[in-house]
């Protein structure tokens, strides 16, 4: 695969494409197809959640009492802010404002870090109480009952924490991957490799990051606000 330098834009595009725009549109379609696979993969967990929530509403209700809405809401705002700054990172690349683009991308990265720190605090709180998935569950029913104001602790409470850790864990892995990708495009932006005529990698990483945000938009009410 060789690259062709187009005289008008100064950007290289792969030889099997006709033009830079052709390559941009194709790459973007590829990213959307990838996002489609992500939706279906997370979707498996959402379908499982829907079924077991239907079968054991009490388990999910009690389980959600152990999550802290303040943490969840903060993380939602953090991710929304990161989504905004990611979109701005693309915007500033589109108008060739390198410094602002780098600032926006660094802010996105910072939000990712904050998100993971809060996640860490939440996880350590749950692990401290013994609220682990399945076999690793070490919760003491009496102690836990006090914690939720005397509600009866369902026998299969570990199932809720299986969902909690599987869903947030898979999401957390995506956040980490996204942070790695953002670091990569930030460096390339800082080197001045992008401009209005070529910013495909930033666009692609941006789409991925927004998807991570989208998943969280649904996870937040499902895990923190189950009534």
């Amino acid at each position: 695969m060789s690259t062709v330098k187009s005289s008008s834009t100064g950007h290289h595009h792969a030889h099997h494409y006709e033009s830079a725009d052709h390559e941009y549109q194709s790459s973007k379609q590829g990213v959307w197809l990838f996002l489609c696979t992500e939706i279906l993969m997370f979707g498996g967990l959402f379908v499982g959640y829907a079924i077991f929530h239907h079968l054991f509403p009490e388990t999910f209700k009690v389980g959600s009492k152990f999550t802290d809405v303040r943490y969840g809401a903060t993380n939602t705002v953090v991710l929304l802010a990161s989504s905004l700054s990611m979109a701005l990172g693309i915007y500033y690349n589109q108008i060739r404002d390198k410094n602002k683009a780098v600032m926006a991308l660094l802010f996105t990265l910072l939000c990712g870090v904050i998100f993971m720190v809060i996640k860490y605090l939440e996880y350590s709180h749950k692990i401290h109480l013994g609220l682990m998935p399945g076999d690793w569950y070490r919760g003491n029913a009496e102690e836990l009952a006090q914690y939720v104001g005397g509600l009866e602790i369902p026998k299969n409470l570990p199932l809720y924490f299986s969902f909690y850790f599987m869903m947030t864990g898979l999401h957390g892995i995506h956040v980490l991957v996204g942070m790695g990708l953002i670091t990569w495009v930030t460096i390339r932006t800082a080197r001045g490799e992008f401009g209005p005529e070529y910013y495909t990698p930033v666009e692609g990483v941006g789409l991925f990051w927004h998807l991570v945000d989208l998943v969280w938009i649904y996870l937040f009410p499902l895990l923190y606000l189950v009534s």
Binding site: K28, C36, V47
Partner: peptide, 29 residues
Amino acid sequence: VLGIFMHLKYDNMMNRVIIGSGVFFLLLF
């Protein structure tokens, strides 16, 4: 988020179909 942050509102039809079919088949599942 999809429409504005991800530019789908201004994007071509195919990308909307792709994401729509993802959601559709998930609902089917």
